[in-house]
């Protein structure tokens, strides 16, 4: 059996390795699929569902769905973007996101995703949950009000920092990020140099005394939508006619399993 599969993504032919996810294949081909919890280089998590695509008509999270030979995948459609807008709106009303006073504003992926999807105001009622701020660490702040439970810090701390500083406690609406039970950040192994801090897409994990250093106008998403440069960096599908192959970039060492 060949270790390569081919599928159609919004009319473009995409080649992938068998076992590769639709998300990874799309990233290699330079096609942007909106995402919050997925980061290339981390194990897929599949919690935010913003990357929901339709595979042969069925909704799937692209970050955890393996590419299937001959599949037809829809990504950038009005219907899917409306679902994504709904998901992002629910993330906003489910937490306490005050962009106007947040240090992450302008560099926040949740905010940027809402901009990209054209959210002017959530349509659901705000839940205003009671959440803590852990400012015990001299150099790091953990603000649960802004956390969207993407597990990027959990995975980065575990897999890249080799520390396992963060984990989840409780379930459902009570679910939240925690360091060891009963332990505050200052008593954990967390360090200001941890890559886990950079992994946070929102303003939940911040280095202290770093906020507002970049003026409005110079921040990541002030002028360009999130995902706008993904295609450029890796060969945009622009100009690729229907059926034209978008060869995946060479990926040494990536074998079909």
């Amino acid at each position: 059996m060949s270790d390569r599969v081919t599928f159609m993504l919004d009319g473009h032919r995409i080649e992938a390795y068998r076992s590769q996810t639709i998300m990874d294949a799309a990233i290699e081909a330079g096609v942007y699929i909106p995402r919050l919890c997925h980061v290339p280089g981390l194990d897929p998590w599949g919690s935010c569902r913003v990357c929901t695509v339709k595979v042969n008509g069925r909704p799937c999270a692209a970050c955890i769905q393996p590419a299937m030979d001959g599949a037809t995948v829809e990504n950038d459609t009005d219907e899917l973007n409306a679902w994504r807008r709904e998901l992002v709106e629910m993330l906003f009303v489910g937490g306490n996101h005050f962009c106007m006073s947040c240090e992450k504003s302008g560099n926040c992926e949740l905010q940027a995703m809402a901009y990209r999807l054209g959210v002017t105001a959530p349509t659901h009622p705000y839940l205003a949950p009671e959440r803590d701020v852990d400012a015990s660490h001299p150099d790091i702040m953990l603000d649960h009000n802004r956390c969207i439970l993407c597990a990027r810090c959990v995975r980065t701390s575990r897999d890249l920092d080799g520390k396992q500083v963060f984990g989840f406690v409780y379930r459902g609406a009570e679910r939240r990020i925690a360091v060891d039970p009963g332990v505050r950040l200052k008593d954990s192994e967390a360090d200001v140099t941890d890559r886990a801090l950079d992994a946070c897409p929102v303003g939940a994990l911040l280095r202290k005394r770093q906020g507002f250093q970049v003026p409005v106008g110079g921040r990541a998403y002030d002028h360009e939508p999130i995902g706008a440069t993904d295609g450029e960096a890796e060969g945009a599908p622009d100009g690729a006619s229907d059926g034209e192959s978008l060869e995946p970039a060479a990926s040494a060492g990536r074998e079909a399993s």
């Binding site: 906003f92 306490n96 005050f98 106007m100 205003a128 949950p129």
Partner: peptide, 18 residues
């Protein structure tokens, strides 16, 4: 038309909602 973050999401005054 709701104009501004206070009208659209409560804004700074809504910090008291918690």
């Amino acid at each position: 038309v709701s104009v501004g973050d206070c009208a659209t999401m409560g804004g700074i005054p809504a910090l008291r909602n918690r």
